[in-house]
């Protein structure tokens, strides 16, 4: 049911872990629905480039794979460019997802946005086009 790329990112997820004193952290989803993603960003203060990105995910195979791919896609990008990493981009990079798993890629997009939002809030900057995170673990 999953593409080889999804299986690869599930079996060998990239960038799993935490970043201490991260520049931005975003947690989305909730345990009730069975998916929680947390993304940590380390952003260069001068260049606004994402130097490091890590994730932790509670969820199905697709949730893990989309988180892993999302961290790869934002790494090295500026916080403004990172906004362009959409769920579609994550899905395409994974050679597609089964229809019932599309929400996982949406969650990955939201997790990036939530981490960027956290960064923007902490640094009192505005990232144009970025909206406050929709869902948070605190919603429960």
């Amino acid at each position: 049911m999953y593409s080889e790329k999804v299986m690869d990112h599930f079996s060998n997820p990239r960038n799993v872990g935490e970043i201490e004193d991260a520049s931005g952290v975003g947690t989305v989803g909730n345990a009730k629905c069975g998916d929680i993603m947390r993304i940590y960003l380390d952003v260069d203060e001068e260049t606004k480039v994402i130097k490091d990105c890590k994730f932790k995910t509670f969820g199905c195979g697709a949730a893990v794979a989309t988180s892993s791919m999302a961290t790869e896609l934002v790494m090295g990008k500026t916080i403004y460019e990172a906004l362009e990493v959409t769920n579609k981009a994550v899905m395409e990079a994974l050679d597609g997802l089964p229809p019932v798993k599309v929400h996982c890629s949406l969650l990955a997009e939201e997790a990036i946005h939530a981490a960027l939002w956290d960064y923007a809030q902490k640094n009192h900057i505005v990232i144009e086009g970025l909206e406050p995170p929709k869902a948070d673990i605190g919603d429960e």
Binding site: M7, S11, C33, G34, F58, G61, A63, V100
Partner: peptide, 27 residues
């Protein structure tokens, strides 16, 4: 702290057929 489908995929990689009541396996 973990989700069932991920567990099933990992067990499947070791040749183990099992099942779960997680949402991801119920559709």
């Amino acid at each position: 702290f973990i989700e069932g489908e991920s567990m099933l995929i990992m067990l499947d990689q070791k040749g183990i057929c099992a099942s779960s009541g997680s949402a991801c396996t119920s559709g």
